[in-house]
């Protein structure tokens, strides 16, 4: 304890220098891995103790496109993500509405139940999903893989949307009813625009979850539904690190785009939020 105390004191004394050193190290450990991938994806004959690759090449990207059929795989990934996002959002809006606005006995318990897939290791129910989907011939179809993703995406959507809908101002809805709008009109002209930011947030998060999902895909994919994360895993297994790096760079671009969206659209804290009450 005393040692810690002295240490903290010294940090506080020489603080600016130490603080910036800390932040620098933090920045380095987060970003350098990506620089390493980037260098590996364009380097040739990079052996031994060299800081930078001696020759540059785009061969690995060509390989990634030709051999691993990266465009096919990207298309797979996106199709699956779009289906998963659409289903999750369609589940999330009514269920989120029920949680946000209607009286439900034992609401918290029910919510905890809905969120259970986020608490149990995915591999545990991925085993079951794989067996069920085999029987239903859903394995190796885009819809099947997307449906498996919904298991993990829908809780996200419900969580985000119920919070948004709960935050709706009751008076606005009443005002709309007073103005003579029927339920249908109220929904499309008043409610939908109001919850649109929430829907967008939910879409961003479910998309990220589906795009990055590995475990559930690995259990349900087939040769026609290889996604980017699975292909990356297979490539690492095959030992082609350069090609894997090139693929990773392609795979990471949408993630950076998402990061940009998150920063612009929503408070990043929501990315992990919603678990405090469980």
């Amino acid at each position: 304890m005393n040692l810690l105390r002295i240490y903290v004191k010294s940090i506080l004394r020489g603080r600016k220098v130490l603080i910036y050193t800390f932040l620098l190290c933090f920045g380095l450990i987060i970003y350098v891995p990506f620089i390493m991938i980037m260098l590996r994806s364009v380097g040739k004959n990079w052996f031994g103790r060299l800081w930078l690759p001696p020759e540059l090449t785009l061969d690995w990207y060509r390989w990634a496109v030709e051999v691993t059929k990266i465009f096919r795989i990207t298309a797979n990934t996106l199709i699956i993500a779009v289906i998963a996002v659409a289903i999750s959002t369609l589940i999330g809006i009514p269920t989120g509405w029920a949680f946000g606005r209607r009286k439900i006995p034992g609401k918290e318990l029910l919510m905890a139940m809905i969120l259970l897939p986020r608490m149990i290791p995915p591999i545990a129910y991925a085993l079951g999903i794989a067996q069920v989907f085999y029987r239903l011939h859903l394995v190796n179809t885009h819809f099947g893989v997307a449906l498996a993703h919904v298991a993990i995406c829908a809780p996200y959507a419900i969580l985000v949307l119920s919070a948004t809908i709960e935050g709706l101002d009751e008076r606005v809805l009443e005002a709309s009813a007073v103005c003579g709008a029927n339920r249908f009109k109220t929904f499309f002209h008043v409610i939908l625009p109001l919850i649109l930011p929430g829907i967008l947030t939910s879409i961003i998060f479910t998309f990220t979850a589906s795009y990055n999902e590995f475990t559930l895909t690995l259990m349900t994919y087939g040769k026609d539904t290889v996604t980017l994360p699975v292909r990356t895993y297979l490539a690492i297994g095959e030992g082609y690190w350069e090609v894997t790096s090139a693929m990773s760079i392609i795979l990471v671009i949408p993630s950076i785009f998402v990061l940009f969206m998150i920063q612009r659209q929503v408070t990043p804290e929501k990315l992990v939020g919603g678990f405090k009450g469980v």
């Binding site: 987060i30 970003y31 990506f34 990055n212 990356t232 690492i236 950076i256 998402v258 998150i262 990315l271």
Partner: peptide, 17 residues
């Protein structure tokens, strides 16, 4: 923003890096 990166990029890529 940096803090969010490990959560946004696919875990496999982080591990590869």
């Amino acid at each position: 923003l940096t803090m969010l990166i490990p959560r946004v990029v696919p875990g496999l890529i982080g591990a590869l890096g």
